[in-house]
Design a protein around this nucleic acid. Structure first.
Lengths: 224, 224
DNA sequence: ATCAATCCTGACCGATTGGTCAAGATAAGC
DNA sequence: GCTTATCTTGACCAATCGGTCAGGATTGAT
């Protein structure tokens, strides 16, 4: 019952510190795959350990517990997410902002499909570990964006659509290609989605959503 | 290893047949909840049995095996899905068809949120039980719709957008409110989505998607 | 070379997993 | 009232679960 100290590596990170780093990376990658595929309960440390090429004990040595490993993965994904949430202002061009919004979200789903699916599985299961984040940080972020969208609408730069539903629309449409990849591939008959496919999808979503919201570029504001 | 016959109830379904029916319904409902929340691997028969108010042995008596129960639930959900896939023709009005498409998909997600999440969890896990369905039946269905959308575009009734991406857009946007319910509620601060909320969301999606695809009603075809 | 800290892992733990089975309870047909 | 088929369930099984721990291997500083 004594607390096992997390190994603190103050110095000498070269040498075998490289092993540690590689092992941790391998474990995190394997765990992300397994948790994404089977959810928190359905994932087994044995499975994760095998995919990481390590004995199960070693996984626990590095990560402490299944729960801790899972939370660490969630936090890593939230960090990736926050990294692309730069501030926007009412003065920005709606078309540019929305396109950048769609594009960056699409890139995130593409660059980290397993993390995206891990997040999806967490929400699907009722978000037991993320409820605070959703109704706290993320909620504030959404509210802030929503207010800007409304101001754009007041200035006639876009239709007066409900900004929160708009954000959900963009999230769902972009996340779909990571979370439902199996469905997309099965229906299209492709084995993978190429960069060109993703580019076409991004362009399609941008076009439909911007047009659908009546977004006018700042340049042709006069010509309604 | 002898095959356990599925109890065949040829006659006398009244009387205690009602018990059977009620038990089966209860088990299926409980199983849908548990599988949706935790995925196939993460769900436990013990949990399902408790939620159904029956001993675990009884669940196995009715359903045979975990795998069989899961497949039965998937098939029930596919049946619900197929029930609203009525045929459409090039002669139909694109605006009407697309709105009905969005609306019926939205209603399905609302009426059977657990089933929707069960389906989502299956796809998230790589669709191990549904791959044939996806690359078979469903693919054909999508291709057929896609061809009609293209013909509408040729006739100038809508923009020449890629019809498959359009179908995915509608699927993702509507399914989002069931699958990511926890996120939607957390961010909006609501406890549930009311009928009025759903109606507003449906109207929003219809408006944005139809406008975004440049759908013109058959009536004002002349006035482009 | 020595010593202490860190790393690594096989053996093991109680709990839980999906599934089996035998035996008792219940109901229907004659 | 008896027989037969269906229903119900606690006891039980091997396998796997997350986690612990002792102790050997490895490493870096001196």
């Amino acid at each position: 019952m004594t607390q096992r100290d997390a190994p603190v590596r103050t110095r000498g990170d070269s040498g075998n510190g490289a092993t540690r780093e590689r092992n941790e990376r391998e474990i995190l990658a394997a765990a992300e795959r397994v948790f994404a595929r089977h959810g928190y309960r359905g994932a087994s440390l044995q499975d994760i350990a095998e995919q990481a090429g390590l004995p199960k004990s070693n996984v626990l040595y590095y990560m402490g517990s299944k729960r801790g490993l899972y939370i660490r993965l969630l936090e890593r994904m939230m960090a990736r997410w926050n990294a692309l949430l730069d501030d926007i202002s009412v003065e920005d061009d709606p078309a540019e902002v929305l396109e950048a919004f769609i594009r960056s979200k699409m890139e995130l789903s593409r660059r980290h499909p397993e993390g995206s699916r891990l997040f999806a599985a967490e929400i699907l299961g009722g978000a037991p570990f993320l409820q605070e984040y959703l109704s706290g940080e993320l909620r504030d972020w959404v509210q802030a964006r929503a207010r800007i969208f409304e101001q754009w609408a007041e200035r006639g730069l876009m239709d007066p659509v409900d900004p929160v539903w708009l954000i959900f629309l963009i999230w769902s449409a972009t996340q779909h290609y990571a979370d439902f990849e199996a469905q997309v591939l099965g229906i299209t008959g492709k084995e993978t989605l190429s960069d060109a496919d993703v580019e076409r999808i991004t362009a399609f979503l941008t076009q439909v959503i911007l047009k659908g919201c009546g977004v006018r570029s700042r340049d042709d504001r006069v010509a309604s």
